[in-house]
Structures are given as C-alpha cells and as structure tokens.
Design a protein around this nucleic acid. Structure first.
Lengths: 152, 152
DNA sequence: TTTGGTGCAAACTCTTTGCAGCTCA
DNA sequence: TGAGCTGCAAAGAGTTTGCACCAAA
C-alpha cells in the first residue's frame, strides 16, 4: 500500500539480482555498488554515468567516476540496465528490470524522452524474415519531433 | 546507357549542390573537398570519417583527417549526407541525395548494414499524434539480428 | 589473509579547434 | 591580394585501464 515500501521492495529485488550475479563470479556487493544501483533506480532511467556520479556527489556519497562506469557495466551484464546512445555522443543507461520492451520519442525542443509501446515492429520482423531471410533479435526505434507541451 | 557515365553525372550533381552551397556562403570548392565528396560517393554510404581518410590515403590523395571531418560537416549542412550513430561510438555518414527515407538492419555476426524500406512507421506517427499529441518529424529504426548469409 | 574493489590519474578514441602557412578566385 | 582553406598538433569530451592502497569474506 505505502508507495515507499513498494519501491524499497523493488530496489531490494534488483540488488538481489546483482548480488547473485556477483557471487556467481566471485565478486562482492560493496557499499559503492549499492550506492550506484540505488542512484540509478531513483532516476527516470535515461541517465549517463556522469549524471549518476554527480547525483552521488550531491548526496555526499564519495564514489569515483570510474566506479560508476564499472558498476553500470556490471548492471548491463546482469540485464538490469541497457546502454543506449541517442546520438548526443554519450551513453545513457535505461532500467531493464521489470520493464517491457518499448520505443522512444524525443522532443527536439525540450529534449524530453518519452517511452511508448507499439507492436508495429512485430509485423516488420516477419517481413524481414520472409523477404531478406534476416532473423531479428532486437530493435531500436526512436522518433524525433515536437511534444505536446512544446506545441502549446 | 553506360553506367560509368550515369554515375559521373550523379556525382556531378552532388558536387554542383555543394558548390552552390559554398558559393552562397562565400566559400570555395577546393581540390580536397572534391576528393572527399568523390570518396564518400564511392562508398556504400555508411562510412566514418576515418574510413574516408584511409581511402584517400590509399589512393595517394593527401587530405588531412580534420579536413575530412570539416567536409563531411559541410555535406551534412547542404543535405548531401546524414550523420548516424549505430552505437559503436563513431559517427557514420550516409548518402542523402536521391535516396528515399529508409531503415536499417544490422547483422550481429558479420556487422553488415542493410537498408530496407517499410511504411510501418507511418501509421505509428498517426497514433503518436492522437495519443500523445506528439508531431513526428523524422525517425530512426534499426533492427539487430542475424542475416541470411550468416545463418547458412 | 587473501582476493577483489576503489580512487586517482593516465591513457585512449573520436572529434573539434587554433594557428601558421598555403591556395584559390 | 586577400579571404578562405589546409594540415598539423593540441585540446576536448567521454570512457577505459593500470596501479598502489583499501576492504570484505
């Protein structure tokens, strides 16, 4: 019922997945790794390493930028995060646990990134298989334009 | 009739567009710019600046890497090239003159990039307008998987 | 106590920029 | 001639890596 409790439960689940992954590889769940994961989960899920680093700094948590990069790489390894580049020269990490596959629209005016779900790609996958003998594993669809807020 | 002639005619057209663009801005069509444009047009249209630089080197044409970057930027300005990042950390330039809007599929195994056309995105644009009040200007769709050649 | 982790700084990659000399109209 | 262009090298941005010290099991 309490949203705070629910969120904590979710966060625990992701930390648990990471802990298992680390254990399987003889690695430990350190204070810094917990801090990075919690900072990552608090965001809207389209963050850069630098942004997480700054957020941790602001909170007074001393974690090196290299550690942030290393931890995000670990999160990617155990499918808790997906690295994406939206063409601005940096990599943004997206939350992957408990999220459905989705696509993005980006506003050219305010830069906001909005997720949406569409299954128009599914039929396309069939076409590519029959026409090009190409088996699709995953895809990436981004639409650019002007969002409702900016048009007003 | 002769394909060589046709290609030269096309190349001339692109150089002409660049020359006009340069003239409008008080700039000149130099030996180096012609070399970069010709090298760019000879490729499959998904090249990095470095690749064009190397190709020119191999041909014995001495053009600096900075000039290649500067020229590709000019080509982008006059809509002869489109910069795209496929997530490998570099920018690839695509031919834009006389090419229809299209999407890409990339083979995870051999890395080949194949273009295809699909209008499945068109209906999606309508959905986004009615559901999110978002006006789409352009889009980017990339599908990853295994191509026919690699599956054999 | 031992293996692994961290922070720092240096290295690396891709791209842009400053500048002295060169070139084109 | 003079504005614009070039090549080089240096600077930047983002990311990775090497290493000496630190920390968790």
């Amino acid at each position: 019922m309490a949203p705070e409790k629910e969120r904590c439960a979710d966060m625990g689940k992701e930390l648990e997945i990471l802990r298992e992954h680390l254990a399987r590889h003889g690695m430990n769940l350190t204070r810094q790794r917990v801090a990075v994961v919690n900072a990552f989960l608090k965001t809207d899920g389209h963050v850069t390493a630098e942004e997480i680093y700054q957020q941790l700094r602001d909170e007074g948590s001393r974690v090196g930028l290299a550690t942030v990069y290393r931890t995000l790489s670990l999160l990617t390894d155990c499918n808790l995060a997906i690295p994406r580049s939206f063409g601005d020269g940096t990599v943004r990490y997206e939350k992957a646990y408990g999220y459905e596959s989705h696509d993005h629209m980006i506003c050219d005016s305010c830069g906001s990134i909005v997720e949406f779900h569409s299954d128009c790609v599914d039929q396309l996958k069939c076409e590519l298989l029959t026409q090009h003998n190409f088996v699709v594993d995953r895809h990436r669809l981004v639409l650019y334009g002007i969002c409702g807020n900016c048009r007003e």
